[in-house]
């Protein structure tokens, strides 16, 4: 059971988190033409990286989605980053 740092709640156990997506994907603007390759890349293409990864996770109790960098081999958490605008 891993420990993940929610940017809002702090360290919590893995069972409270869900993987959402690999980081860095942006939904294509679907009101214009989106070709099949572009759509497939958004929906299906995964880097599935070995080693350092950047992923979007959700902390279920507080529903916060955030970016977590971690090592998919050693399971080490390298850092987290909120996706929310923080007050200046």
């Amino acid at each position: 059971m891993q420990l993940f740092p929610c940017p809002f709640c702090g360290l919590r156990s893995e069972g409270e988190f869900h993987f959402a997506a690999e980081a860095g994907k942006t939904r294509p603007v679907t009101t214009r033409d989106v070709n099949a390759e572009e759509w497939a890349a958004y929906l299906f293409d995964q880097k599935n990286e070995k080693g350092a990864t950047r992923e979007v996770w959700t902390h279920l109790p507080c529903a916060e989605m955030f970016i977590m960098s971690r090592d998919s081999v050693t399971m080490e958490v390298l850092g987290t980053q909120t996706l929310r605008k923080l007050p200046a």
């Binding site: 809002f8 709640c9 702090g10 919590r12 279920l60 109790p61 507080c62």
Partner: peptide
């Protein structure tokens, strides 16, 4: 739950016995 006084949290929400 892995709930400890020495581990503060900004949120009171957590899974306890697997339940929100």
């Amino acid at each position: 739950a892995d709930l400890f006084l020495e581990t503060p949290s900004a949120s009171v929400a957590r899974l306890t016995f697997g339940l929100p």
